[in-house]
Design a protein around this nucleic acid. Structure first.
Length: 479
RNA sequence: CGGGGAGUAGCUCAGUCUGGUAGAGUGCUUGGUUUGGGACCAAGAUGUCGUAGGUUCGAAUCCUGUCUCCCCGACCA
C-alpha cells in the first residue's frame, strides 16, 4: 500500500519523523545552527497548547510575568550545582557593537561587556533575584509566577522539536513558606501536565520521579512526565522540580514568619516545552502523516468541495461555506479549502496535516442534502455519508470519540511495549533481543555497577520511578 | 564535541573518480482533456552547483578553510 510519507516508521523512523514535519508544514530548520522556524500551521498547534495550558496554570492562581532573556553571568555563579548543569551549553553575549572592517562585519573589540550576559537556559536565577526583593513577609507567600518564553541551550546534537538550541516553553517559579506547600505545588503541577496530556494532547504519559542522577541541577526532587513514542524511546516533556531552599539560600529569598522569625522560602519550578509537538508527531502520527487530536487541531473539520468543471462550483462552495458557518456556531473550528487544486491533492494535503475530520461535498451530496466525512485516525474505512443535519447533530460526539480513541490507542501502544522485569538480567536479555520500549525494573536492581554496564551497553537510562510504582524504575532509550 | 555521510532548479537526486561552461524526475506557469484515495497531453519558466579562497587557459568536478543538515556516540527539555 502506498503511504503519504516515505520512508515509513518501520523503514526509517528518524527520516519519517522529519518528513512528517515537512509535509505537514509544521517547522523547518533555520539557517541559525540548531534552531528551528516554526511555520504557521505548527505555531497554530502550539498556540492551542499554550491557550489551554495557560488557562490551567491560571486556574492554580499563578500569575504570568516576563523576565529578560539575558541573564548577568554573575547570577549563575551564585548557585554552584546549577551553574555546573548549564555551563556546558550556555550561549554568552560578550559585545554590544559591531564594526565593519574591509566590508566585513565583526565584533568591535572596543565594545566588550564588562559583565557578559547568558542567554537564559532557564530563569531560576533571574526570578530568584527578583522574588528575593518582592518577598518580605509570610503575607507575600505563596508567590506563584509563570512566564511563556524562549530559552537557549547550546545542544551538541539537535533534532527539530525534540531538541533545539532555542525552544519555547512555559516556566513556573513559585515560592512557599513551608516545605509541605512547595511539595504540594510540585505534585499539583505534575498532575496538571498529566491531565493536560490525557485530555488535550491525546498522549498517554507516565508520571514519575527522576532518580538522583537524572535530577534538575539544584533540585531536591524532580518529577517528570515521560512519553513513549513510536520507536519505543522515551520523551521527557514536562518536569516539576522541588528546589527546596537551594535557590532561596543562594538568592536570599527570605521572609518574616508569623512568629517574626526570618526564614528561607521553599521554591519550585515546572515547565512544558515545544517538545510537546514532538509527542504528537513521534507519538501519534502514522505513515500518512500527522494525526491531530481534535482539541489541538487548528482546523477540526476541513471541508473539501468536489466538483467537475465549473457548472455547479458556486453552488457547491456555497454549501461548504454554509456548513462551515453552522460548525462555527457549534464552536467547531472549520475550514473550507477553496484553493484551486485537484480534489485528490487537497485530500492528501489534509491527510498529511492531520485534520481530524475531512468533509467532502460534491454533486452527489449537494443533490441529496448530505455530506461525506472521514476520520483521520481511522482512514477511508470510516467514510460515512449522511444528511447535513445528522452530521451537525453528531459532530461533537465524533470529535469527542476521536479524542479519546487517539489517547486509548497511544495508551495501548505504550502498555504493549512496556515490560516488567524481576531481575536486571531479564531486562538485559530483552534489550539484547532488540526489545524497544520501557522496562520496569525494581529499584534495587538499578543500583550497582552491573546496571551501569547494561545501561552503557544498550544505551538505556533511568527514565523515572512511576508514581504508581515507586519501587520500580522505567529503563529505556531516550531522546 | 568525536566518528561517518551530505549540501547542484521549490522538492528528491544524477553529474564529481577521469576538469571543457548545467541535467532528470517531480513540483511550478499556460492551454486543453479529466476529476470521489495520488490523472493525462502539449508548451514554458527556474540555478552565483552551501560559502570563501587556492590550483588551472578553463572548476559543480582537484586542494584548503568555513557554514549548515542527517546518522551513530558523549550531553540534555
Amino acid at each position: 500500500m502506498k503511504t503519504a510519507i516515505t520512508p515509513t516508521r518501520e523503514e526509517d523512523f528518524a527520516q519519517w519523523y522529519q518528513n512528517v514535519i515537512k509535509e505537514a508544514e509544521l517547522a523547518e530548520n533555520s539557517p541559525t545552527r540548531g534552531c528551528m522556524t516554526i511555520m504557521p500551521y505548527g505555531y497554530a498547534i502550539w498556540e492551542l497548547i499554550q491557550e489551554e495550558m495557560n488557562k490551567r496554570i491560571k486556574a492554580t492562581d499563578t500569575q504570568n510575568t516576563y523576565f529578560p532573556a539575558m541573564i548577568p553571568m554573575s547570577f549563575f555563579e551564585k548557585e554552584a550545582e546549577h551553574v555546573e548543569g548549564f555551563a556546558k551549553e550556555s550561549a554568552v553575549i560578550t559585545h554590544y557593537r559591531l564594526k565593519t572592517v574591509d566590508g566585513k562585519m565583526d565584533v568591535d573589540p572596543e565594545a566588550k561587556l564588562t559583565e557578559p550576559y547568558i542567554l537564559r537556559p532557564t530563569s531560576e536565577t533571574m526570578i530568584g533575584e527578583a522574588t528575593s526583593r518582592w518577598i518580605q513577609s509570610y503575607r507575600d507567600l505563596p508567590m506563584k509566577l509563570n512566564q511563556w518564553a524562549n530559552v537557549f541551550r547550546w545542544e551538541m546534537r539537535t533534532r527539530i522539536f525534540l531538541r533545539s538550541a532555542e525552544f519555547l516553553w512555559q516556566e513556573g517559579h513559585c515560592a512557599f513558606a513551608t516545605e509541605h506547600e512547595a511539595m504540594a505545588n510540585v505534585q499539583q503541577m505534575l498532575h496538571v501536565y498529566g491531565d493536560f496530556s490525557k485530555e488535550i494532547l491525546g498522549v498517554y504519559s507516565t508520571l514519575g520521579e527522576k532518580t538522583a542522577e537524572e535530577r534538575f541541577p539544584g533540585a531536591r526532587h524532580t518529577f517528570t512526565r515521560e512519553v513513549m513514542v513510536q520507536d519505543g524511546k522515551a520523551l521527557q516533556t514536562g518536569t516539576s522540580h522541588d528546589l527546596g531552599q537551594t535557590f532561596s539560600k543562594s538568592f536570599n529569598i527570605k521572609f518574616q514568619s508569623e512568629e517574626g522569625k526570618e526564614e528561607f522560602a521553599y521554591t519550585t519550578s515546572w515547565g512544558i516545552t515545544t517538545r510537546m509537538m514532538g509527542d504528537i508527531i513521534a507519538g501519534l502520527a502514522d505513515d500518512d502523516g500527522l494525526v491531530l487530536p481534535p482539541k489541538i487541531a487548528p482546523h477540526q473539520v476541513v471541508i473539501l468541495p468536489f466538483y467537475r468543471g465549473d457548472d455547479r462550483k458556486d453552488e457547491i462552495q456555497k454549501a461548504c461555506l454554509s456548513l462551515k458557518q453552522k460548525l462555527a456556531d457549534l464552536g467547531i473550528r472549520a475550514l473550507v479549502d477553496t484553493t484551486d487544486a485537484r480534489s485528490s491533492d487537497k485530500m492528501w494535503k489534509w491527510v498529511k496535516k492531520g485534520a481530524p475530520i475531512r468533509v467532502e461535498i460534491g454533486e452527489r451530496e449537494l443533490d441529496a442534502g448530505s455530506l461525506s466525512y472521514v476520520r483521520r485516525d481511522i482512514g477511508k474505512e470510516s467514510k460515512e455519508t449522511l444528511s447535513t443535519n445528522d452530521f451537525l447533530g453528531k459532530i461533537d460526539s465524533v470529535l469527542e470519540a476521536m479524542q479519546t480513541d487517539i489517547y486509548e490507542k497511544h495508551k495501548a501502544f505504550t502498555l504493549d511495549n512496556t515490560r516488567t522485569a524481576k531481575k536486571l538480567t531479564d531486562a538485559e536479555k530483552w534489550f539484547k533481543e532488540g526489545f524497544k520500549g520501557f522496562v520496569l525494573l525494581p529499584l534495587s536492581e538499578t543500583e550497582g555497577a552491573a546496571f551501569e554496564t547494561v545501561a552503557e551497553k544498550y544505551k538505556v537510562s533511568r527514565r523515572c520511578m512511576p508514581l504508581d510504582k515507586p519501587d520500580h524504575v522505567i529503563i529505556a532509550k531516550s531522546y
